[in-house]
Every structure is written in C-alpha cells, then in structure tokens.
Write a protein that binds this DNA or RNA. Structure first.
Lengths: 332, 332
DNA sequence: TTGTATGCGTTATCAT
DNA sequence: ATGATAACGCATACAA
C-alpha cells in the first residue's frame, strides 16, 4: 500500500505537505496540490483506514450481534442494517451468537477493545431464557453505546427498536374473530419461550378472552416432527377454523397439513402467519402474514445508534416499528 | 478505555515494562507481573485492537462481499464463514452488493485501504452478466488476496471454492431418468443467466441427450407470477412426469401447483429441487433436494483464504465442495 | 530486571 | 507555502 511517506519521498517534499495537499488545505499552492494529486492518483494512494481510526479514536464501525442469519427475519434486518450503515459511511462487523449465551458474551468482549464504536444486538435465546445479561450491561459500563432490537431486556437501560408484538397478534386474532367469524382459533408457535413469543401469545389470549372464546396453543419448540404434530392436532380437532402462527414457518406447514386433511382454505380454515418479503410465494393458497418490516427495524436501529454516537444531546428511547397485516389467499 | 500509559503511570513504571509484563515476557519479574496483571484486571484493561493492527500491519479481519443474505444459500454460507473466522480469531466485515455492480465495486474500494487482510466474494449478478470484473482484478493487483466462491470469474486467477454444479444436476436428472423411469422432465429455474445456472442447465441437457430425451426449460427469472406460469405450463403439458428445479424456491412452488392440478407426487410426478437445511419442511410431500452444503462452502473458503494470508508457500487452488442428493418424499 | 527510543500512517500544531 | 514535531496505543530493539 502506498503511504504518505512514499509520496513525499518521490516528490521530494515533506509528509505534512503531502497530507495537507491531499486534504485540499488552503496553505498549499495549487501547483503542489496538482503534483501531489497526480502522483497519488497514479499510485492509487488511499489513506490507511487503521491509522485514521487510531488518530481519531473512532472506527466508524458498528458491531452487529445476531442470533442467526438463517432465519429470514434476521436476514432482512441485516439487509437494512448494512444498507443504512453504508449510506452513513459506517462498516459493520457481524457476529452470530447462534443463540448461545457464551458466544454472545465472547463476541461482545472481543469487540469491546476499540474495534467498534457501538453495538446493535438481538439477545440470544439462551441469554434471554436464563436471564443472564450482565455481559451486555458491562459493555454499557465501558461507555460503548449498545442498542437492542427485536428481543430486548427490560432491566437494561439503552436504546431499543422493537415491534409491537402484542398489538399485532391481538389485531390479527381479532380480524379472524370479527371479520371472518372464526370460533376455534389455534395458535401455533415454535418461539413460545422468547420475549417476543410471550408477547404475541398474550395478544392472542387477550383477543380471545374479550370475545369469550377458548384459547388453544400448540407449542412446537423442540418438537421433532412439526408437520406430523400439526397434522394430528388438526385431525383430532376438526372444529378448528382459524390458525394464527407467530413464526415464519409453522403457518406454511399448517396450510399444507390442512390441505392433506382436505380442508378448504380459506373456506373451512383461515390462516395468518408471520413472514417476510417472499414468504407467501411458498404456500398455495398464498399465506396471509404479519409483515414485520424487518428491513425498517435494521434501518431505524442504525440511525438511532448513530445518533447516539454523534449527537451530544442524544436521549435514550424505544422506537416501535409499525408492522402491517398483509392479507392474501389464506384468509377470506 | 484503559491504556498501557495509564497503567504505567499508576504503577510508577514504564510503558514497556507494563507491555512486557502483560505479554508474560521472561524479562519481567514475577512480582512486577503480578502487580501489573492485578491492576489491569481491576481496570479491565484490553489492548487496543486498532493500535495493534497498525503496529502489525495486519487487521485479522476478512471482508465478505455477498450479493444478499435473504437468499438462504448465502445465509448459510455466511454462517459457515462467521463460525470459521471466529475460530481462527478473525473478524468479518460484511458488505451486501444487492447484486449491483456499482455497490460491489464501491465496497471493494472502500475496504481496500487497510481495513481487511483479504476478501471473500461472490460476484454480483450484474457484474457477472455484464462481464465487468476489472474492479476485482484491481484489488488483486494491490496484493490483497481475494477468494471467489459459488459464482466465479474464470478469467481471474485466484483461490476459488465452488460446487460441482454441472455434475450435480447431471446426476439428479439421471436419477429421474434411470431410477424413476421419467420421460418428460422439465427444468424450472429463476437463475438461468448466472454462471451456476448455466452449468446446471448444461448438466440437465447432457443427461437428457444421453438418454435420447427431449429437454424443456421454463425460465422464470424476471417473471412476475411464477406460480401461475408454472401452473399453466403443467396444465398445458400433462405428460410432464419429472421436474428439476435448480434454485431453492421454484421446486416448492411446482409441488404446490402440481397438487392444485391433482397430480399425485411422487406417483405422477417426481420433483427434485435445490435447498438448504430446512427447505423440505416447507412442502408436502417434503421436497427432495440437492443440498449444496452451503455451510461447508463458507468454512472451506475461510480456511483457504487464511492459508493464503499466512502461508508463505500458498498455492492458488480451486476447491469443489461436495454436495449431496437428499431424497425425500417428492421422489419415489 | 527495567527503561528509552523508535516506528506503524495519519493529522494537527507549531515553526520557518 | 512548506516543513518539523508530536501524538494516537502498542510492541520491540536496544540500552542501562
């Protein structure tokens, strides 16, 4: 890599002159600027980013800690994060916790050595279930800003970007009750022990209670044959006329199983799931989904974190990113 | 952040003594080491990574440039990359080209300033279609190692990690011909203009030619209503008794459409697609897939790049990661 | 065993 | 208009 020193030597001028010339300082003559810029161009000079980071004590880099990227929700969040970070001249260093507390902790510790200016994090499943989040609080103690999105820890005070999980499922359930006159609505889930899962289940329960209906929940986390389990449930409960899935996968499976049982969708059974950009391509009839606008979650998270990093008067806040109910063929 | 200087001042010793003590140098007395380590522990000292990077002229960071992460194939590759990088004490900076030549170019240029030690890249669709890859060659000119995976550019000489696309589809097609006695095998695809798509189509053609059968290809890239297009094709060609999908989505749609036409799967129609970890959960009957072992692609890529970065005698090579045909319910 | 000096590449301050 | 020097934090060759 070409350095200032090399340019200076070749031009027989000092390093500081070269530096100033490249930064278009008024102290430098037009002639010198021209000579310097020409040579810099020719040798493809680029200021060494690491040296700048050391000098400025800023990395312009954000640490992003995600449970996984195989889940399309987080994939789309990451898309939003990357795009917005790039637009604001930030790089992102990505770590995947794989839902492990230990990996999450190590990643945070490793990057808390000046590698990044701040963190975006979704707490790992294990950390959340075991309620161990001291490692996150410790990062905040070292004055490195942290923003939590999606899954959050109430006890920790920091910026947060979330979805209105409770309201969303409440609304979706109410839609099935009031608009589609469904009486026996099943909730299927493989995320029941996550904070967001609990909130969604509460929304479902509230809507049913208000309507005087009974709630039925099929918990599928750690279940091996998800398809068979749903099939057997539907077979044993033929009265089921509505399904709310609170994740992005069990709703599609439920549609397939219902079809195998010769249930007409949406005539006999309405289905609403959670989903992302192309989710509804995957089922026939196309599944109606709660679209969480994952991209926007990523976008808002980056913007809020950068505000924290750059704005003296930044105030901690919690942003709720609006979601939308995207009705398709699996509802009437 | 605590620095060596601060520790030195507090202990009334020199910076270099502190540095050596922390690095467990034999030059330093046990007593001093103890004092230093205790204070370092107490103040939660961590060596500033940026300063180390500048000193060593190494970042221990890999730049990863992906077209997207919403595609589960790349998501799983990224998983393999992250895990393997972490195990080898490397960070990853992730950039998403979004299939755009321009974004890919800018990302490469931005990180070619000392930010990373090397690159892992899958060429963007636009770059590949327009055959513009000078920006990648330029990075190599600056002596920063680049490794291409999945989609590769033949004209550029560098490490490569690929899948045996030709052979895979050849084998899958032959399976339908020889084992399942299929005569009218359709290929569906939404990636026909990518290098990997072309290779896969060639494998399909070869197998059919050898068997004296006719090839039929349904190209779906840029098609709006993929489901309807497949439906209409199958309706107009009821003789179709086998389908090869060369991407991870059109195979599932084909199964759904065939069922809508009351075709029995796999009795009337066998289907093989491409897919990843949980792909087969999404269809009923479960789809048979070519599993590309995306995770391994990521893993091998990192290992090969690190060898290039650290091994004096590294020789450029192309690794073919073996895939497997995972038969499930959509074949007999 | 400990300390001093130097340099990584850049930029800001202070001479000349 | 140009140059010398110092500093960011760390590591190491070299003195003492």
């Amino acid at each position: 890599m070409t350095t200032l020193k090399e340019l200076a030597k070749l031009l027989n001028i000092s390093v500081s002159t070269v530096s100033k010339a490249l930064n278009d300082s008024h102290e430098i003559s037009e002639n010198t600027k021209r000579r310097v810029n020409e040579l810099a161009e020719k040798l493809n000079y680029k200021p060494n980013r690491i040296a700048q980071q050391l000098k400025n004590n800023k990395t312009k880099t954000i640490g992003v800690i995600l449970p996984t990227v195989t889940n399309p929700f987080f994939a789309e969040v990451l898309h939003g994060i990357e795009k917005t970070a790039t637009e604001n001249d930030y790089d992102i260093i990505v770590c995947l916790s794989n839902e492990s507390l230990d990996k999450e902790k190590r990643s945070l510790e490793l990057l808390s050595n000046g590698s990044v200016d701040g963190f975006l994090i979704t707490v790992a499943r294990e950390s959340q279930v075991k309620e161990k989040t001291d490692h996150i609080a410790e990062v905040l103690n070292t004055k490195i800003p942290v923003l939590m999105f999606d899954r959050v820890v109430n006890e920790i005070s920091c910026d947060k970007v979330i979805v209105n999980d409770f309201q969303l499922v409440y609304d979706a359930t109410q839609y099935l009750i009031k608009r589609e006159r469904r009486k026996n609505i099943l909730l299927v889930s493989n995320i029941e022990e996550l904070s967001v899962g609990k909130l969604r289940i509460r929304g479902y329960r509230k809507a049913l209670e208000e309507a005087g209906l009974e709630s039925n929940i099929l918990k599928l986390d750690n279940v091996k044959d998800v398809d068979k389990t749903i099939y057997e449930y539907l077979k044993g409960h033929p009265e089921t006329d509505g399904i709310i899935s609170i994740d992005h996968i069990t709703g599609i499976i439920a549609i397939n199983m219902a079809k195998n049982l010769n249930k007409a969708i949406p005539k006999d059974l309405s289905v609403i799931g959670f989903g992302y950009e192309h989710t509804n391509l995957l089922s026939s009839p196309k599944i109606s989904i709660v679209h969480q606008n994952a991209y926007n979650i990523g976008e808002m998270s980056v913007k809020l974190l950068i505000d924290n990093l750059t704005n003296e008067n930044h105030e901690l806040q919690t942003i709720v990113v609006p979601s939308e109910l995207k009705l398709s063929e699996s509802t009437q």
